[in-house]
Amino acid sequence: MQLSTKHLLGIKNLSSQDISLILSTAEQFKEVLQRPVKKVPSLREVTIVNLFYENSTRTRISFELAEKRLSADTINFAASSSSAAKGETLLDTVNNILSMKVDMVVMRHSASGAPHFLAQHIPAAIVNAGDGINEHPTQALLDAFSIQEKTGSLQGRKVALIGDIMHSRVAQSNIYLLKKMGAEVVVCGPPTLIPKHIASALGVSVSYNIKETLAWCDVANVLRIQLERQNQVLFSSLREYNIAYGISRQLLDSLNKEIVIMHPGPINRGVELNSDVADSKQSIILQQVENGVAVRMAVLYLLSGRTAQA
C-alpha cells in the first residue's frame, strides 16, 4: 500500500486511506523509538533539507529528530540567517539547495500556499511543516494519533477545537482530518476569532460557550492565541480572554466527566490554559510531542519512495 500523493501539502487532499496508512505506520515507528537503538536504516540514501522561513522550536526539532532516526542526512536552513535576508527568491533558494542533490524538502513559511507553489516547480518531495494560516498537516496527524492512542478510535469521537480558530492552521488541518475520519467537531471561541462561514464551509458546529463545549466533548484541543498574526484588536485583553475562554481547574472540575486536554504548543500559560490544567494528568500535551516524532517518521518514510526516480 502506498500514499496517493507525492507531497504532503495538507490534509485537504489526503484520502482517509492515506491517513490510516500514516497512522498505522507511525505506530510501528513509535515501537522503534522505545528500543535500545532508536534508529532504522530506511532513509540512509536520502538527504532532507529543513527550510524554515518562520520560527519554530518543536516542529523543527521533531522533524530533525525524525530524519535522524530514519538515518537520513539533514541540512537546516533558517531564513533569518540566510541569503533570503539578502533578497533571494524562494524558488532560487530552493533550486540552489536542490542542485546539491537534496531529495526532500520540509518547509515552513509564513505565506499560505508557499509549499504548494514550490511543488509545482521542483521535483523533490515536499512536506508542509506549516504555511501561514492554511495548514499544518503533521500536527493534525500527530493530534489524531494521540487521540487514537488515548481513546481508542477517531470514529464518532467528539472533539472540540477551542480558541483562535481564525488564525490557526492547526485548526484547519485538524478539522479536515477529523471529519474525514468520522469524528464530530465543534469549534469554540470568541466570535471575532471564528470565521463567519466556517460551519457551512467545513461542516463543523460553532459554539461561543466554553462550558457547554467542554461538557459536550471527549477531547478538547486548545489552540494558542496567535498574537503575531493578529493585526487588529480582536478581544480586549489577555486577562479578559482568560476569564471568558481560558480553561481552569475549576472549570474542568465543574464538569461531571473527565475530558482529554491537548495543546499543539507553545502554550500561553494563564491565557488559553492555566498551569494547573496544562500540567494535570488529563493533559496529553507531552505525549503529543513524543508522538510527533513517530508520525513525522511515518510521513517521511512513506513519501521517500517517490524520490528515487527524481
Binding site: 502506498q2 505506520t25 536504516p41 519512495g305
Partner: peptide
C-alpha cells in the same frame, strides 16, 4: 520481527510495515 525498515530495496518500493 518485521524487517520492512531494514530492506535493502527500500528505495525501489515503499511497503507498509507489519507488527514488531
Amino acid at each position: 520481527l518485521d524487517i520492512t525498515f531494514y530492506r535493502d530495496d527500500v528505495r525501489h518500493k515503499i511497503l507498509a510495515p507489519d507488527t514488531m
